Simulated assay, not measured.
Amino acid sequence: MTITLPNIEIIFKQLASNFIKRSERGIAILIVKDDTDTSFTSKEYKNLKELEKEKTLYTSENYQYILDTLSFQVTKVVVIRVSTTETMVDALSIVEKTVKTGWITTVGIADDYTAIVNWIKDKESNGETYKAIVYNATAPDCKHIVNFTNANVVFKDARAEKTGDKYLPSLLGIIASCNIEKGTTYFVCENLAKVEEVADNNDSLNLGKFILINDFDNVKVGLGINSLTTFTDVNSEDMRYIDTVETMDLITDDIRNTFKNDYIGKYKNNLDNQVLFISAVNTYFSSLAKEDILDLNYKNYSDVDVVTQRAAWVKIKPEAEAWNDTKVRNTTFKRNVYLGGDVKILGAMENLRFNISMF
């Protein structure tokens, strides 16, 4: 038997398929190429005052990008700096050594966005929860990637009209600031006067493109979606929404981190100790429901995954096929903990149908 590091796999499937510390959300990771000051590779800013003190570390253009991100209520902005001769792969290697999760973007060239897409998909396959906003990428089809596509935007300040990629830092601030608390649909982009709309809004949305629209005097996010367009039992249609995936990632990070930090190696693998962990998870789900993250009117629970645990036993004890569910639940499998859960994530209100009858 191959021995590996402890494996904690949190699998989300449609409809079934406070821990010690709530995982931090709202982190914006902005990658810049800048040779102004090469003495650092990363900086953190929580407010504009902190940034102003270090204005001389960046070109005026990169400083503006950081300012744009901080203009929205993010938890913090992590600036990843690489030299102008380094690649996006170099920058992303710094990201994974610096920040455990967060939203990532850069103002770059097509190859930069391709590198980010590939990196995010690799991280997603490993169960990590980084997310990115890219510009006009070719069908990323990924729930952790937002693909912005408007060709041009008009800023309210002296920058006036710029190509759409120059708005990525602002979108980074907008999306990171919304996190699990609210959707981004119809979010007002207060620093824009106008946007060049795409040719067909609905066609773009159905292709997994994130778009801005003009709504009278405001520029707004059209719909808070990521680039996922291929739907399966694992990646359902609900997972095309940014706020749904944010909640999934919150739960994944919290459960995984708590199990890793407070349970692995500290408890024997018997049912009583599994129930302790299950009870903690269910209490956590209840707290999320009270915060309108999960649906308070839904059961929202976790328990031993009897089907998976039975299958594990059947491989070495074929007679386990005939065990009743209680025996399977009581018979823990070696060092493995097989749990399942069923929760209902609340999405933001977006669609209204209001029929009025007149006498």
Rank of each mutant, 00 (worst) to 15 (best):
E86G: 01
D122C: 08
V337I: 13
I20S: 13
A199P: 00
T332Q: 09
N214F: 02
N152M: 10
I80S: 08
T101R: 12
D215Q: 09
S177H: 05
R310G: 03
V107W: 06
P6A: 10
I255A: 03
T2V: 14
E350H: 12
D111W: 00
T326Y: 02
A348V: 15
K162G: 02
T163A: 14
I278F: 06
F354P: 01
L168W: 02
T129F: 00
D253I: 04
I66L: 07
N191W: 04
G164Q: 06
I3H: 14
S279L: 07
L57F: 12
T129L: 03
A132N: 02
F277E: 10
K166N: 15
I94Q: 12
V74Q: 08
Y130K: 05
D305H: 03
V134E: 04
A132D: 00
Y267I: 14
N152F: 06
N150C: 09
F231L: 09
V195K: 00
V245L: 10
Y167A: 11
K194W: 14
N261T: 14
K76E: 11
T106G: 08
E350M: 11
L339G: 11
A160V: 04
K162H: 04
L92W: 08
A132W: 00
L296T: 02
E237A: 12
H144L: 12
